[in-house]
Simulated assay, not measured.
Amino acid sequence: MLEITNLSVNYGAIRALTNISLDVKTGEIVALIGSNGAGKTTTLNTISGIVPVAEGSISFKGRNITKTPPHQIAALGIAHVPEGRRVFPRMSVMENLEMGAFTRNDREGVRASFEEVFQRFPRLEERKNQLAATLSGGEQQMLAMGRALMAKPTLMLMDEPSMGLAPMLVEEIFNIIRAINQSGTTILLVEQNAHMALSIASRAFVLETGNIVLAGAASELAANPEVRRAYLGE
């Protein structure tokens, strides 16, 4: 579904990513793990078209999207749940969800998507007229995920969905991610909580200072002594 080949990204004179290659197959959860500043968020922002590519290519379902504008990438079926949630604070829950559906013209389909989102996140329906700024951190994360689902994506990019959440909420968020995947959405997951990420992913890549240093089955990486020492607290 997604193929990144020899991708390099610069921030001015600083190279953030160096010749990285990775792929995501239809139906997978693929985890991208690494320490702060490794380039994980940059990778997702580059796929979404927010950050320009210096070298290399990105293809989605066989189509080259390397220089495609972000709004067109969203319309192709890639939804991005950004780091820090980035909900629209002065808009209501309903208005935030409507923004997620901005690429769609099918009113009946959008109405059905509202129902699906509210079934998955009952708390959002309870708070649908509240301003997003008044929600808790966990509720804002649910809203960011619900907003992405409103686009009916085939690929979701999730950036640090557990950041700042209580352990009980982290468990809930990861159960929801697993359920979204099981309902047919492919997921590329960036997550600081490497243990949780590797527990739900089928494959994973390890990013260090802009380079992919390890790749393989998530279960194999979870058992790798180097990964356990660096990212699993052992």
Rank of each mutant, 00 (worst) to 15 (best):
I173C: 13
R86P: 00
F205N: 10
R107V: 06
G138H: 12
P70M: 04
H195P: 04
L189I: 01
M196S: 12
E226C: 05
K152E: 13
A31L: 01
N64S: 12
E160V: 06
L44E: 13
T41Q: 11
V51W: 03
P82I: 08
G100T: 00
N181F: 07
R147Y: 00
Q72H: 09
T185V: 13
Q182W: 02
A201H: 05
V170W: 00
T186D: 04
M145W: 08
A230I: 08
M158W: 01
R86K: 14
T66Q: 07
A166D: 15
I50Y: 13
R123K: 12
R120C: 03
G84R: 04
E126G: 00
F60W: 05
E220H: 06
T209A: 06
K152R: 09
E208V: 11
R229D: 14
A166P: 13
A222P: 07
Q130A: 11
A217Q: 13
F121V: 12
A201L: 05
L198N: 05
Y231E: 03
F60E: 04
G39Y: 10
A218F: 05
L97N: 04
N96A: 02
L188D: 00
L155Q: 06
I29P: 01
A74L: 07
R63Y: 10
M163E: 15
A13P: 12
A217I: 03
A222T: 07
I20N: 06
E220F: 02
L189P: 00
P161E: 14
E234G: 13
V9E: 01
N6M: 02
E108G: 05
A144G: 13
T68Q: 13
Q130G: 05
A179S: 14
F102C: 01
P69K: 05
E208Q: 12
I65K: 11
Q182L: 09
R120Q: 12
N19M: 07
L135M: 14
A230P: 03
V9S: 03
P89C: 07
S35G: 11
N129D: 15
L7I: 14
P70G: 06
L221P: 03
I78C: 13
T134N: 14
M99N: 05
I29W: 02
E171C: 01
T186M: 01
E220Q: 09
L221C: 07
A230K: 09
A201Y: 02
L131H: 10
I14K: 10
A179L: 04
S92Q: 14
P89G: 06
G109P: 07
G37S: 03
P225E: 09
E139K: 09
G100A: 03
